[in-house]
Nucleic acid binder design. Structure first.
Lengths: 223, 223
DNA sequence: ACAAAAGTGTTTCTAATACACCCATGG
DNA sequence: CCATGGGTGTATTAGAAACACTTTTGT
């Protein structure tokens, strides 16, 4: 009963919104293979560590964000025999949705890390193109029926800021009036903070925090 | 740079409909751990085998069904440190939806295999309870927006047989008239076979094959 | 003739869309 | 006072649900 030895890694598709664009966190590889090329952040799962824990650890190391502010979920696993030329590696990919972070990423231990607009990503290392494509598709689909859009926002946000998230991720314009009604009508989605802001100009807007809702009923449909 | 050694397996949640119940394929374990207990079918990924290929191979070994007749998709990965007491095992779970098969499962190499109604599954080996729960939830959700219900049917089927699939998987009654209109109205979902059958009694029903549609628009919503 | 299942037509109601309009602030 | 974005009201329309009714077989 010999079981072939595998290495197991976690890789992260960390998405955020910066300057009105959907961006992904990429790190520059220092060693072969693909030395000097950009890649998704990730690393080996430790001997006594659960998969989710490994993903959370890598995320903290790379971004320094508090886990409570980020939405993390397992995406899929990838294990083609020669996806890593050194050895047989199966990677468990995770999708993370994070609020906008300061540009020089705090607490990072990677040599070089960068937020890149997803439209401009070209030929990254390993099979990470495919993983990124799958992660973006998942994020787009999940906004429809799960309250994850708030993960892209600061702890307190306006309805218009939440709408911008949808417009940027989906790439379609939404009617501000109908969106407002829809999103404030979903029970448990938004909790009023009781304060207002004028940071976007015009009439002061109500500030909200994320509510306790786990599911989005009815769903918010794409244009 | 030492990478801890992992074993990697695939486990299968194979669902079918037998006697108007949603059933899952379970196999009896011959060896420790959990000797004599029921478990999801599965096995080790081979050194030169992709994950999807390993899942397809195990499915063929356990059920003997032709791959074209079954819907197979990756479900999720599970890798808690002590989920297998022998060693560190990460398993990639797959969900398969199959048409009703003859009871003594043809082409099986497992010592003992059985279709069990999902409601009656109790305390199966390892963390397979959790995997099964996740698989059922995925199947229920996927019927809404993907044309996978046909995977439970024979190659040629009636609208009423397709409706029974939805009713059994969701556990809710559906209006036959509205269902008929809805499902025949989705472009590309059903291809008329040109023949009819009276196997369900009453007026002859049109027979259909699965159409080329990949997505279900508009979705079929749960009552 | 009658039961049973297939399939169609029609009415009702809910919810998404489009858009006119008013509100509250900064400059 | 005017520009800007926030928020409400309302008419239109698309689709879901409910159900009466007709069709085509087996017995």
């Amino acid at each position: 009963m010999e079981h072939p030895p595998f290495a197991v890694t976690v890789d992260l598709v960390v998405l955020t919104i910066r300057d009105d664009e959907l961006c992904v966190l990429l790190v520059r590889r220092g060693e072969a293979p693909y030395a000097g090329r950009w890649a998704l952040p990730g690393g080996f799962v430790r001997p006594d560590e659960d998969l989710d824990a490994a993903a959370a650890r890598e995320l903290a190391e790379e971004t320094g964000v508090r886990p409570a502010d980020v939405h993390v979920e397992q995406l899929a696993s990838y294990g083609a025999p020669r996806r890593d030329p050194r050895m047989r590696v199966v990677t468990v990919a995770y999708l993370a949705l994070a609020p906008s972070l300061p540009s020089p990423i705090a607490g990072t231990d990677a040599a070089e890390a960068r937020w890149t607009p997803v439209e401009r990503v070209r030929r990254i290392a390993f099979d990470h193109d495919r993983i990124l494509t799958d992660g973006i598709a998942r994020a787009r689909a999940k906004l429809e029926y799960a309250p994850v859009a708030t993960a892209f926002c600061a702890p307190e946000f306006t309805v218009a800021e939440l709408r911008r998230v949808y417009e940027i991720v989906w790439g379609v314009p939404l009617d501000p009036r109908n969106f407002h009604r829809k999103v404030t009508g979903v029970p448990g989605l938004l909790a009023p903070a009781g304060t207002t802001t004028t940071r976007n100009g015009g009439r002061p807007a109500e500030l909200y925090r994320r509510g306790p809702a786990e599911l989005l009923l009815p769903p918010i449909l794409r244009g």
